[in-house]
């Protein structure tokens, strides 16, 4: 079993420019778009451990739940909003990467210490920018994004209005 663990740490495909990289099939499987459409989200998630992994055990709360159900619920909700730095294609709540595990542990530790989820999210945004949060903030540049649904509905009703006839004019 230890043999299995050490194999994971063996050098893989040097040279990587940065160990965040995942499988990059340059000449390999140039699949059809349809095929890729299906597997791409999957590859994002499963391909991450292609980099060498740390031999350290997981951080305390990386893969363990907080005993307080309400706190665990808050922590989980926050994790689902935080984007994984390594795989970039999913939240830290469902990533196998070590850094995502450490981030889960950080989130659970701080929630257990009584910190509010929004404060933790702000702390992360201060360090990594808005990229880290899957929920875009409400700022000047993202305002169109949040107004969009109402705008589209209003536009639709305006378009449809011409198709209706008055009730009286039967």
């Amino acid at each position: 079993m230890n043999d299995f663990q050490t194999r994971r740490a063996e050098p893989v495909e040097a040279p990587f420019s940065h160990s965040r990289m995942w499988v990059r099939a340059k000449n390999g499987p140039s699949t059809s778009s349809g095929l890729r459409r299906l597997i791409a989200p999957a590859l994002l998630l499963i391909a991450t451990p292609a980099l060498a992994d740390s031999l350290m055990p997981d951080a305390q709360w990386a893969n363990a739940q907080l005993p307080d159900a309400q706190q665990e619920h808050e922590a989980k909700a926050l994790m689902e909003k935080i984007r994984c730095l390594v795989c970039q294609g999913q939240s830290v709540a469902d990533s196998d990467s070590d850094l995502a595990g450490d981030m889960r542990s950080l989130i659970r530790t701080r929630i257990a210490a009584g910190e509010k989820p929004e404060a933790i999210r702000a702390w992360l945004i201060e360090r990594y920018g808005n990229w880290i949060s899957y929920e875009p903030p409400m700022t000047g540049i993202t305002a169109p994004l949040w107004i969009l649904p109402l705008l589209l509905l209003a536009l639709g009703v305006w378009l449809a209005r011409g198709r209706f006839r008055k009730r009286k004019a039967k």
Partner: peptide
Amino acid sequence: LTGEKLSVGPPY
């Protein structure tokens, strides 16, 4: 537009 990266994900 701004050079800043942001993410739009499941919560949105």
